[in-house]
Simulated scan of single mutants.
Amino acid sequence: MRIASACLIALLMAVSTAAAAETLGISKTKPAEGPYVEIDGGFMVPYEITIPGTEVQLSMVPVPGGKRVMGEGASAYTVKVEPFWMQKTETNWAQYKEFMRLYDLFKQLEGNGVRLVTDDNKIDAITIPTPLYEPTFTYENGEDPEQAAVTMTQYSAMQYSKWISGVSGKQYRLPSEAEWEHAASGGVAGPYSFGDADKIGDYAWYAENSDGAQHKVGEQKPNQYGLYDMNGNVWEWVLDAYSEEAPAALAGKTVTVAEAIQWPTKPFPLCSKGGSWDDDAENCEVTSKLGSHDDDWKGSDPNIPLSPWWFTEYPSTCVGFRLIRPLTELPKAEMIKYWDSLPENLQFDVADRLNGGRGVLGLVDEKLPEAIKQLDE
């Protein structure tokens, strides 16, 4: 009996060890070369996956934990940042157009009575951006597959992160403002990860070297963590609402990332970070941020209510995003806030579009790619 128990324990340990060894982005041994982040029981390492159901790749690099001081002077507060992986480059059109493609596919699945959304499974549902009413605006600065995707709303970027999470079985989301700054700093104090502002042309596409146009992602030098275009090229959505002032309630405190996020309570302004190809060097600093304005950014939108997924005016042509994957996963019920959080009036806008047949809900899980494949058979 003791021998059987010992064998069972050994088997369970072997299975557990094998599962840990196969954890995406974690190596049990220290890499001989390249970036890594040491954690309990192993090392976080860069990884690349093919997004399930597509032929496009997602490349992630590890970012070590640490502390990020937000704000200045008496209003400053400290955020404890846990390790995470961050997308090596901004989300490009090759990746985002696979997300856009789901609109017609979800309509077909819905029409076939397949994978219908119910109250029981709605936690796994996403909305997809409606087809572009006027594509020339969104693609004004190009639609090369390697250019950063732009003009999507923060909500649409959050839904994209839920799609990647559902089909991959891993938790991806937008970074918080504190996480984004921590990653962009490269572990260096000051306005830029590269130190001297005179070096910005080597690391960023900005107003003085961009020739008035957006560029492909990853063409400049990366920062210390292997992240490209954290300064310039396009602004990047984070989870937070935009505010000129640090939240008074956090002044002088040390808090977690979850405690530091300034969840939006109004449709705008929402926060994006890092500057763009059309901004000067000062607006490309690590602490730089841009607040959205729906009334201005959706000025040409013919929809009533205005689209929850797309903008139609400058400077949204300079706004994109990238994803992170936290080391520690949360229960799905807690992740909903990171994927589906919307101020109340935007919730009404989404519901109105869906009820009017001008939007679609679809389930995202690891079975979705096979369901889509069957549509062509």
Rank of each mutant, 00 (worst) to 15 (best):
W205Y: 01
E98K: 01
Q57V: 14
R325Y: 12
A213G: 15
V257M: 02
Y96W: 06
M100T: 15
Q262G: 09
T91M: 09
I3T: 06
A371Y: 12
G226E: 12
P52K: 00
G73L: 11
R2N: 14
W205T: 05
L270D: 01
L8V: 09
T287H: 15
T136Q: 06
K367V: 03
E22I: 01
G252Q: 09
P62C: 08
T312Y: 04
A241W: 00
A351M: 12
D340H: 04
F99N: 00
G166P: 10
H215S: 14
S272V: 11
G34D: 10
G166S: 01
D376A: 04
D294G: 03
V188Q: 10
K266W: 03
Y47M: 02
G291Y: 11
P269N: 03
G42N: 04
A125W: 04
R101W: 05
R68D: 07
E22M: 10
L102M: 09
I123S: 13
W205N: 05
L58M: 15
P35H: 14
A14K: 03
L368W: 02
G299C: 13
R353D: 03
A184H: 10
S59F: 11
A281V: 14
V61S: 08
L250S: 15
K367M: 07
L24Q: 09
H293L: 08
A125M: 11
K367E: 13
N121I: 09
I51V: 13
T151K: 00
E33L: 08
W339P: 01
D196N: 12
E134F: 08
E329V: 06
E219C: 05
C318F: 14
K122L: 13
D202M: 13
Q147W: 08
P222D: 07
A14R: 06
A10L: 15
Y139T: 04
R2W: 01
F194S: 01
D295R: 15
E48Y: 07
S75N: 14
V45H: 00
R101V: 04
K199F: 12
A371W: 11
Q347K: 08
R353Q: 04
S316Q: 00
A281T: 05
R358V: 10
A178R: 05
G252W: 03
A148N: 09
C284W: 06
N209R: 12
P302S: 06
D295M: 15
I123Y: 09
K122C: 09
E313A: 13
E282H: 14
A281N: 08
T29M: 08
R353Y: 08
I3G: 05
V79N: 02
I123P: 04
I51D: 01
V364E: 01
F99G: 00
R173I: 00
D120P: 00
L11W: 10
L24S: 11
Y203A: 04
L327C: 09
F43M: 06
V79A: 08
